[in-house]
Amino acid sequence: MSNAELDAIFLTIALASITTVLLLVLGTPLAWWLSRRRGSVPALLEAVVAMPLILPPTVLGFYLLLLFAPNTFLGRFWQELTGSQLAFSFSALVIGSVIYSLPFVVQPLQTAFERIPQNLLQAAATLGARPVDQFRSLVLPLSRRSFITAASLGFAHTVGEFGVVLMIGGNIPGETQVLSIALYDSVESLRFTEAHRLAGALVVFSLALLFLLYRRDRQRGWRVRA
């Protein structure tokens, strides 16, 4: 494997890991809020969260590129804060990936939170548990499986992204050249051996992850803490 390939693999893992952590931090409160509210405002927000599922990634990438340009408010703000431009940077990829993979984390969590019986939380409250305590001691352990699902899907989906990265990241080795871009690059320059290695690795990784998730989902029931 060449250095460029290893760089691409390392960059992809770093991007997917950072994105997943951010998604869990941002997605958990968002999913909780969505699961507890009725009405038009949450419905609209839910629709916005779900948009990356159906929009061509290039549409999202196009708007993000405009947003990240050095002459916008965000672009200027970023430039002053960090001294480097936002577009075509690793940070831009992280922001893009968070938005792009948001539904893959929020939706399983929201479904899990909606399944938590309200009456268990009430029972906890009568036993002296404050809301944060209820969340930590009941909601988190009862939706543990969904957290693993959400994290896995968020990670895998970020590994698999192409359109958004191409639009906002370009193809800078070591900075924005992730696996899917490196693969595209190899095919374009007719380096098929390298393309086979990268494509094969992605297929094996995705299949293994999804297999593990689905196999686990067939073993139902709570894991009781003794």
Binding site: A123, L127, G128, A129, L138, V224, R225, A226
Partner: peptide, 15 residues
Amino acid sequence: RLFPHLNVQRNLDYA
């Protein structure tokens, strides 16, 4: 309304 992820002892401990 016992907590399904905790056994009997831990349900009592919760209180």
